[in-house]
């Protein structure tokens, strides 16, 4: 494995998108970026550009109006990509079960790799989910490189 490969798989860029969340999980995602939890030490950086993102971090139960926008963002993210659903409502739509304007979870719209439970998801749970996502993404990125040769 070359030097670039090793650096590349260690620093994915994260794209955060709110698809109708109550901001509870968003607050905790912001808390992750700041001094006490600081996820940058694991290599992930929050950048709001889908074209350069590797991990798509979604909060919220996906409202009908956000559905197409989310699909659009997902298609813009280059392969290999990974989707992380943060919080109960992104995972299952739970608190907003049977509400007329929600799609009941991110996995009804795009495929999801990591689910983080909690309402709102606690920063510790989010870090745990992110570590899982990072190791999964590392595998995916390595596999993609091997195919390319």
């Amino acid at each position: 494995m070359g030097l670039l490969d090793r650096i590349g798989v260690r620093s994915p860029w994260i794209l955060h998108f709110d698809t109708g969340s109550c901001n509870g999980c968003d607050l905790e995602v912001w808390a992750l970026l700041t001094p006490r939890y600081d996820v940058e030490r694991f290599g992930g950086v929050n950048r709001a550009n889908p074209k350069q993102a590797d991990i798509l971090l979604i909060t919220g139960p996906v409202t009908k109006k956000c559905e197409d926008r989310l699909r659009n963002l997902y298609e813009q993210v280059p392969e290999p990509k990974l989707v992380m659903a943060c919080g109960n409502c992104a995972s299952t739509g739970a608190p907003f079960h049977n509400c007329y304007n929600v799609c009941q979870g991110v996995d009804k719209v795009i495929p999801v790799d990591v689910y983080v439970p909690g309402c709102a998801a606690r920063p510790e749970a989010l870090i745990d989910g992110l570590i899982k996502a990072l190791s999964m993404w590392e595998e995916k990125a390595r596999a993609a490189r091997e195919v390319k040769g």
Binding site: T19, T63, C66, P95, C99, Y100
Partner: peptide
């Protein structure tokens, strides 16, 4: 983009709404 229909959901059960109402924001 963020309309979830909270006012409808809140009127379903006034006891559960004590907690659901926090999920407005």
């Amino acid at each position: 983009y963020n309309h979830r229909g909270m006012e409808h959901a809140l009127s379903l059960d006034y006891k559960k709404s004590q907690y659901l109402v926090e999920r407005v924001c």
